[in-house]
Design a protein around this nucleic acid. Structure first.
Length: 651
RNA sequence: GCCGGCUUAGCUCAGAUGGUAGAGCACCUGAUUUGUAAUCAGGGGGUCGCGGGUUCGAUUCCUGCAGCCGGCACCA
């Protein structure tokens, strides 16, 4: 007797083991028709799986979130089958499910074209229409290797050959096509439906290693219904509209040009945003006991040899030779320069911890293909700091830094932050004993701060382990920003020391930390996070005073001057245009506050306040609105949302 | 750096099987004094990314390079 517990709590008993599809049919005919897979206890399996013990069982339909991965995985298989039919000389490799879809990597001498993509998608739809059953067989590993080798699938054979000997492998088949796969899969190709689309072509290295040959990757997206597919495509369009490169142009924030790949030309409005970040951070760091410094961008190569950068970072450094035959490098990091400041004069343990900060501009020769707007540059500014301390101060300093980072992210509206712990990389300086010490110190600190973290093995800096702070933006993308690194190597290498209580010289510990990371990148993240509609305190233009007729010109100038006197970034629009025209233009430019003045306002000394995105206005006395705006800026209030602004307007 | 694609006016984009190009918006000028998302009329503007080749002739075809875009690899 087998007892099956259904999701609704109901129980059914069966005299003998039965398959998932049989159970579905037993429940209802309509469910059997829609069924795509079965969940036995907590494991999702093929519908054909034999249930031979008491279990909790759920029949999954396409709408079930857990079924989506199966759909996508099947879609990858159908893609591969279509490619093999159309281009038999192509070899298959791997085709996993990814966020929102799937991809499949193919090995072939000539790349696919966009036309090929269309043909492949059409063939995929044919394969779905054929509705061939999808079958699962368990093979002996060596048989599978021999089989795939015999049909010319060398990559597949190599993958299977790397599975431990003697282990069984499952082979899924549909029509004439077979692939190694862990499963589970749909009962037949027809169950896949038509809510999929091939999205892009790309090159990708075999086994993700740039020493290997490049394969041809086809990406696709796949959903349970046409409606979901459409929603996803619409979401992509929306995401494109908030792309910081596009908004940077539209809002006149910055530009790039050919002569400076990976280097930003900040326009006044963009620079205003950038300076907001610096001003904010200066204030936070002043309260945090930091001392701001400034160091040279160009330093003799010998310093970079001493620091270890020349050895570990040479490929990424810009270097130049002067007419007098000296060799200089543009700094890729600020740390060695900060050590030079620490080294001036004799330091006592009483001076520690010493927190040295710099908005330091660094240059790194990033690979051309890595450049991406403000997010990945060759010249960028770090909100860098180095905390020189004793070993006994590491934990407390790390905890303080960690808390500060999280607090700062909250101020900018980022609540979801993940922490990664990166330990020693294969290419590094310093002994293993020193690394043991640094890693355990950092781990103690993160535990003391009570943070959850994931291990990121081998990803530390060459001089020490690090924490990386990854924040999630408004549309769910992750960005690595802050970092905290424990360094027991560089101070010694660069000859830094302090006199301890014992009267002896000791090398200090150096904590490297950045909170925004790259100010340019953080600006880019903010642009996308807010879709260009910044909270008032960050807005490059905070208010525009717009006249209805020239009768109000003098008053408008006065209003603008009042705002300006309170430190508010205000502009005055006296142009001979209709108010509709002005309102539209300033709305398109995403100015958060428009103060419209006509004859009436001038006489009554009021303004008509219009918040971005809210059609309804309210009339307020001039004094009141100047004060309210000043307070909103000072409080760094989050963006007044449409709903909140509507409520204010309705008052 | 690797694979593929793209590069035409300030922006978004048309266009010619090879005979030096066009729209909308923006800009300039004039008229209009206007009450909350585009007033009307006129005008100027492009060595079609850069270099080489084929050709009587190249922005169009071929080729090299650069930049950008989508990925991969790398990474703040």
């Amino acid at each position: 007797m087998i007892k099956i517990t259904l999701p609704d709590g109901g129980q059914r008993e069966f005299p003998a083991p039965l398959r998932g599809d049989e159970l579905a049919l037993n429940i209802s005919r309509s469910l059997a028709k829609k069924a795509v897979a079965v969940r036995v206890d907590d494991e999702v399996k093929d519908l054909s799986t034999l249930i031979d013990r008491d279990a909790r069982v759920a029949i999954l339909t396409a709408e079930d979130p857990a079924a989506l991965d199966i759909l996508r995985h099947d879609c990858a298989h159908v893609l591969a089958e279509a490619v093999k039919e159309l281009f038999p000389e192509t070899q298959i490799t791997i085709g996993p499910v990814i966020e929102n879809g799937f991809f499949y990597d193919f090995a072939r001498p000539t790349p696919f074209s966009l036309d090929d993509l269309e043909a492949i998608e059409a063939r995929m739809r044919e394969i779905v229409d054929r509705d061939k059953p999808i079958t699962r067989e368990v093979w002996e590993r060596d048989k599978a290797v021999a089989f795939f080798r015999s049909i010319g699938e060398e990559y597949k054979a190599e993958i299977i050959a790397s599975i431990p000997a003697g282990q069984e492998v499952s082979i899924y088949g549909q029509g004439q096509w077979q692939d190694l796969c862990r499963g589970p899969h749909l009962p037949s190709t027809g169950k896949l439906g038509k809510a999929f689309k091939l999205t892009k072509l790309a090159g990708a290295y075999w086994r993700g290693d740039s020493n290997n040959e490049m394969l041809q990757r086809i990406y696709g997206t796949c959903w349970a219904s046409e409606k979901d597919l459409k929603a996803h495509l619409l979401m992509l369009e929306e995401a494109e509209k908030r792309d910081h490169r596009r908004l940077g142009r539209e809002l006149d924030l910055f530009h790039f040009q050919e002569e400076g790949p990976g280097a930003v030309f900040w326009h006044p409005k963009g620079w205003s945003l950038f300076r907001c970040l610096i001003d904010y951070m200066r204030e936070r760091q002043r309260h945090g006991g930091y001392h701001e410094v400034n160091t040279p961008e160009l330093l003799d190569a010998s310093l970079w040899v001493a620091s270890g950068h020349a050895e570990k970072f040479a490929e990424e450094m810009f270097s130049l030779h002067t007419p007098d035959k000296r060799h200089f490098c543009l700094k890729p990091m600020n740390c060695p320069a900060h050590v030079q400041i620490f080294r001036q004069g004799i330091k006592s343990y009483r001076d520690l911890p010493f927190r040295m900060s710099e908005f330091g501009k660094v240059h790194r020769y990033e690979p051309s293909g890595a450049l991406h707007g403000l997010m990945r540059l060759r010249a960028f500014t770090q909100d860098d700091a180095h905390i020189f301390c004793s070993e006994s101060q590491i934990t407390e300093e790390c905890v303080t830094v960690t808390n500060l980072i999280l607090e700062i992210y909250r101020d900018f509206g980022f609540d979801q932050v993940r922490v990664k712990f990166s330990d020693r990389p294969s290419s590094r300086v310093g002994s293993d004993e020193v690394w043991d010490k640094a890693e355990s110190a950092l781990r103690t600190a993160i535990e003391a701060a009570g943070l959850d973290y994931v291990l990121n093995p081998g990803e530390g800096a060459f001089y020490g382990p690090k924490l990386e702070f990854v924040l999630r933006d408004a549309i769910g993308r992750d960005w690595q920003c802050g970092t905290l690194q424990v360094d027991l190597n560089l101070p010694g290498r660069l000859g830094a020391s302090f006199i301890g209580e014992d009267g002896q010289k000791h090398p200090p510990v150096m904590l490297h930390r950045a909170m925004f990371g790259s100010l340019e990148r953080f600006t880019g993240i903010l642009i996308e996070h807010h879709a260009g509609r910044f909270p008032l305190w960050l807005s490059p233009v905070q208010a525009v005073v717009a006249t209805i007729t020239s009768d109000a010109d003098d008053y408008a100038r006065e209003v603008t001057a009042r705002l300006f006197a309170r430190g508010i970034r205000a502009e005055c629009d006296l142009r001979n245009e209709k108010i509709n025209y002005k309102v539209r233009e300033h709305s398109v430019r995403k100015v958060p506050v428009q103060l419209v003045v006509g004859k009436r306002e001038a006489e009554e000394r009021t303004v008509s306040v219009r918040r971005l995105g809210v059609a309804q206005q309210r009339i307020a006395p001039l004094d009141e609105i100047v004060m309210a705006l000043a307070r909103e800026i000072e409080d760094r209030s989050p963006l007044i949302t449409d709903a909140a602004a509507a409520a204010v307007a309705a008052e």
